[in-house]
Lab assay of single mutants.
Amino acid sequence: DLSGKLIIKAQLGEDIRRIPIHNEDITYDELVLMMQRVFRGKLLSNDEVTIKYKDEDGDLITIFDSSDLSFAIQCSRILKLTLFVNG
């Protein structure tokens, strides 16, 4: 049953990962930690990372904090994230 699940599709460069999320109350910090685990070796804990999501118009919107993240989650059951490393 995928109805209650949130799917995160995260892209870093050419690498795209699909991550099912069971807890929608994820904070921004938890998201960043999850991305560091998912992209281990490509995304380091001291990297400056910018996370953006695609909205319904196809625009890339920056996620700065947990309220941005929860808004993005409300918009779509499949959250398409693009990561930019400013390392």
Rank of each mutant, 00 (worst) to 15 (best):
A10L: 03
K80E: 15
D1V: 03
L60C: 06
Q74S: 07
S66Q: 10
F71K: 15
H22Q: 11
V85D: 04
Q11C: 05
G87Q: 14
C75A: 12
L79W: 03
F39Y: 06
D15M: 13
A72R: 10
V85Q: 07
P20V: 14
M34G: 07
S45G: 09
R18H: 15
A10V: 07
I21S: 05
G41H: 08
E56M: 10
D15N: 09
L33A: 08
I7H: 06
L2V: 02
A10C: 05
D29V: 08
T82G: 03
E24D: 08
S3E: 12
E24K: 12
N46P: 12
K9H: 15
L2K: 13
I51T: 00
V38I: 10
D65M: 00
F39M: 01
K54S: 12
I21E: 01
L43N: 03
D55V: 07
G58W: 00
K52Q: 10
H22P: 13
N86V: 06
D25M: 14
P20D: 15
I78C: 09
R77L: 04
L69Q: 00
I8Y: 01
I7S: 05
R40S: 13
I61C: 14
K54A: 15
K42Q: 08
D68E: 09
I19T: 02
T27Q: 07
Q36W: 05
L12G: 01
E24P: 08
A10I: 06
A10R: 01
R18D: 15
I26A: 02
G87V: 08
K42W: 04
D47L: 15
D1R: 04
E56C: 09
C75T: 13
I63T: 00
Q36N: 08
L81P: 03
K52H: 09
E24N: 10
L60A: 05
Y53E: 02
K54T: 14
A72V: 07
M34F: 06
I7Y: 10
S67W: 09
S76Q: 08
D55T: 15
K80M: 13
K42F: 03
I8K: 02
K52I: 04
C75K: 15
E56L: 12
L6Q: 03
S3H: 08
V85G: 04
E30Q: 11
L31D: 00
D47N: 05
K9L: 15
L83Y: 02
G41A: 08
G4K: 10
I26M: 06
L69E: 02
G4I: 12
D29A: 07
V49G: 02
E14D: 09
I19F: 04
S3C: 06
S3F: 06
I51S: 00
I78N: 14
I78R: 07
L44W: 06
K52N: 04
Q74P: 03
K5Y: 04
S70Y: 05
T27F: 00
K80I: 13
G13W: 04
L43C: 04
L79S: 10
S70V: 05
T50A: 15
E30H: 05
E24H: 07
D25F: 09
V32H: 09
L44P: 11
S3K: 12
K42P: 04
S45T: 06
I61T: 11
L44Y: 08
K5H: 03
Y28F: 08
G87C: 03
R40T: 10
D57C: 14
M34C: 11
D57F: 13
I8P: 00
L12C: 04
S67P: 05
R40F: 13
N23A: 09
P20T: 14
D59M: 15
S3T: 08
L60Y: 09
E56W: 05
L60H: 07
D25H: 10
D1L: 05
F84M: 06
I8Q: 00
L12Q: 02
G4M: 09
R18F: 15
G4L: 07
K5T: 11
C75G: 09
I73D: 02
S66L: 01
K54W: 04
I61L: 14
L33R: 10
S76G: 10
K52V: 10
D29Q: 10
D68K: 04
S3I: 13
L43A: 02
M34R: 07
I26Q: 01
D68G: 12
M34V: 12
T27L: 02
F84E: 14
K42L: 07
K5M: 08
E56Y: 12
I63S: 01
S67F: 04
R37N: 10
G58M: 04
Y53R: 12
N46W: 04
I19H: 01
D65I: 01
F39P: 01
I26K: 00
N23T: 13
